[in-house]
Design a protein around this nucleic acid. Sequence first.
RNA 1: GGGGGCGUGGUGUAGUGGUUAACAUGCCGGCCUGUCAAGCCGGAGAUCGCGGGUUCAAGUCCCGUCGCUCCCGCCA
Length: 589
Amino acid sequence: MFKTHSCGALRLDHVGTTVTLAGWVHLRRDFGGVIFVVMRDREGLVQVVISAEVSAEAHKVASEVRSEYVIQVEGTIRARPTDQVNPDWPTGEIEVAASTVRILNTAKTPPFYIYEDAQVDEALRLRYRYLDLRRTRMQRNIILRHKTVQFIRHYLDAQGFLEIETPQLFKSTPEGARDYLVPSRVHPGLFYALPQSPQQLKQLLMVGGYERYYQIARCFRDEDLRGDRQPEFTQLDLEMSFVHRDDILDLMEAMFVALVPAVTPQKRILSPFPRLSYVEALERYGTDKPDLRFGLELVDLTAALGKSEFRVFSGTVANEGRIKGLRVPGCAGYSRREIDEITEVAKHAGAKGLVTLAYTVDGIKGPTVKFLSEQDLEAIAETTGAEEGDLVCIVADSFVVVSAALSALRLIFRDRLNLVDPDLIAMGWVLDFPMFEWNETEERWDAAHHPFTLPRPSTYEAMLADPTAVLSDAYDLVCNGYEIASGSIRVHDPKIQLDIFRILGYEEADIQARFGHMMEAFSYGAPPHGGIAPGIDRLVMLLADATSIRDVIAFPKTTQATDLMADAPAEVSERQLRELHIKLLGTDT
RNA sequence: GGGGGCGUGGUGUAGUGGUUAACAUGCCGGCCUGUCAAGCCGGAGAUCGCGGGUUCAAGUCCCGUCGCUCCCGCCA
């Protein structure tokens, strides 16, 4: 080994110890006769002192080192004088008195600062990702990710789960997300698909009798990217046999309640997790992934304002729309410009406009006040509970638009009014999703979760007659406004499975071609089973106080799905294409 | 596929159509034996992402394009 100790691990206990360190030059402060080199390794930073009096040779080498040189230092640990202790560093009470300094490798001047978490253009960070990864924040995030995954492995092992790998080369299932395809060399014209998730395989493991399975699984979806979506991402994929919904919910809840303090002691996780129905989540928060760290819930004004003289209100209700509002404390003083900004947010979400009422000392102010009767104003005040100093925002539109607009506004006010404690982790379950959704453009039913989801037994009878009446035994786990896990109890009865496929409009031949192996497997004694799949990237992102999963993935892709470091995707040779029986059509198709 | 934001020495930024494009930091050289992102002195470093247009004059205005990013669509 090049080193006896880690730089960042040295403490007062080590005083008097002779050590050999190896790491990077983080900073250098040259005083002529004495040189301070701050050395960095994975564990952290330590100050090395090189004095010309102690070793002329070491001093000469130290005067030549530059930022990010890789060096090896031999020396003795000594306590710093009390007036020179650096209280900001874990190693601040000691320093290394160097007797030897060796340059293991030189380094070009890096294109951005390694030694601080200054704002750097993300494209540059991605192009030199190996340098970005040296930075404290990235190292902390990647280590946190490791700890999170290790915790999960130990926890599930203790619960009797088996970690089982499933293939990356599998079969395309055209519904759902777009697949990444892999051409077969051996079978001209045929393709594998990279799994969007190991969904079918984990169910088949249940049929295979493994009862409790999990996997830290890489998943692939060829869809457009976001800060919380990458084309390849990692799920804790999990499946259990002989369980009901609550068994899975309880297990996950216990796991997360134990995980959060174990890997992020400064975070506080609320428990028990609230359970909301899908409809309740939409009514109260306007979204099926609410941020439960704060209140500011939506208020329904449909009944109160349905008979208003104000046509926008009465007309909306007449057209089966809804009127809902937000009561925002302390924002009565919003300027014209601020009102314009939040109106823009509502419009961006699809609303035609935003009614704002400011409850000031001089009464209720707002551009629409003149259209509202005393009765209307009273009804609004009573329903929302608005008091002096408050701003009430009202949207009248279809339920979908009202929900989207007010949900967006709720998050805007969250940030503007600093309504959340950044160290709070607020998870919650969203339950009772609809089983099917009507696809307007294709004019058919889609599975809201996926076609293997079990309908809630109480609603199954009505399924064939009225698909909208069917609720599914699916569940989402939300955390701080993100969907962080999704799962369901599965169908294990081939008859029910066939009914579902029929509602989805699959032809018999289709079912055989796409899911024949599943249907056949289910006919050989499939146990009742269900599972869930938490997204590791999003979970770690929230634990790391990051705003993008790119910051918790070692080598992420840009929003154009490219790798700026390796320059992927890239062209391949004619020969490679020929072997794969692929002919390119050109870029203008 | 649609909409918004950003792009100026290595890095981060300032820059009102008008002088030699400014500041900080980093880099290079010099001085310096106790600093904490050391300090002081000196130096190099930019065809203002790219292309076109308007203008006597463009970093600045207009159009296009490329890259990064945020949002909608999409993500069973």
